[in-house]
Design a protein around this nucleic acid. Structure first.
Lengths: 154, 154
DNA sequence: TTGGATATGATATAACATATCATCCTTTCG
DNA sequence: CGAAAGGATGATATGTTATATCATATCCAA
């Protein structure tokens, strides 16, 4: 485990402790698998990587439960448009989480998580207000082509 | 078929003709099923409704193909976060389509399609520009609770 | 009328997700 | 200490969304 990942895990344990929950060995391992990946993974991808990395087979049911837990602790995001999961890019940040905005490359599958500007969200909310709709978990998933893939196709 | 739906279908036929394509009987029926629904439907939902409405069984494979066609003609939208489909609320409008923005009620499943303000999209694009990412099909799916459901829960 | 293009059918399977009941492990409290 | 309770995980089955592939049918143009 790289020093970086080690540090993020340590911070994750603190996050869980602060909510009165436990980052068990297996939950920690699932998070580690996600941290080690440059692209988001499906629950079934995680089963495979987990087996390769830890020589231990995990039922997909358990992976889903552990993902639910990690999402609840805000250590992991689910990409709804892809049915995939990725670790939060800001686990070690102390500041409050902004509304996450994901730039999903439809060519290579990489995803960049950027914070969305507050005033854009505010504009969006204002634009919605007249309809009486109450926004829930705000998360924007934007599809396109990343810089690297654009360079390649030229 | 209601007069409203009848008119939308007529307009849809013109749209297809203008792109050199045909709104066949079955494609028209699939669109009719979607137009008649107040909530978005999955491909499998459409199979069921189609059977009830037209006394004819359609393979789900065909439904997916027809949906692909209708989406290409911009008569139908796919909600990526839900795996469901709905007819475009603006088929009979002549103006150019704005970036669609969907307000999805997580309680009752209803979806409201509203046009997003141009300046918000421009802000979003500017916010993304620095990363070198090229946006593709722009569509925002926002989850929350609609006005009616808020009223009920009070 | 025939031949190519487009549309649809049939079958199989992949990929993502949940329901349910059983088992195991830890914590707590008498 | 030891049993009860609650949380975490395992095992099995099944539901839901989507695609691959090959076959058949329909339509239009040369």
């Amino acid at each position: 485990m790289s020093a970086d990942i080690d540090q993020i895990i340590k911070r994750s344990q603190e996050v869980c402790a602060s909510t009165g929950n436990k980052l068990t060995e297996k939950r920690k391992n699932v998070l580690t698998v996600l941290l080690a990946s440059t692209i988001p993974l499906s629950a079934y991808d995680i089963v495979d990587k987990y087996k390769a990395q830890f020589q231990e087979s995990l039922p997909v049911m358990s992976v889903y439960r552990m993902l639910d837990f990690l999402i609840q602790e805000k250590l992991v995001h689910k990409l709804e448009t892809a049915g995939q999961y990725m670790s939060c890019a800001h686990i070690t940040c102390n500041h409050q989480h902004e509304t996450p905005q994901f730039l999903i490359c439809d060519r290579c599958g990489s995803v960049k998580e950027i914070g969305i500007k507050k005033h854009i969200i505010e504009d969006l909310e204002r634009s919605i207000q007249s309809t009486g709709f109450a926004l829930a978990h705000q998360q924007l998933e934007l599809h396109g082509v990343c810089k690297q893939c654009q360079a390649i196709s030229k």
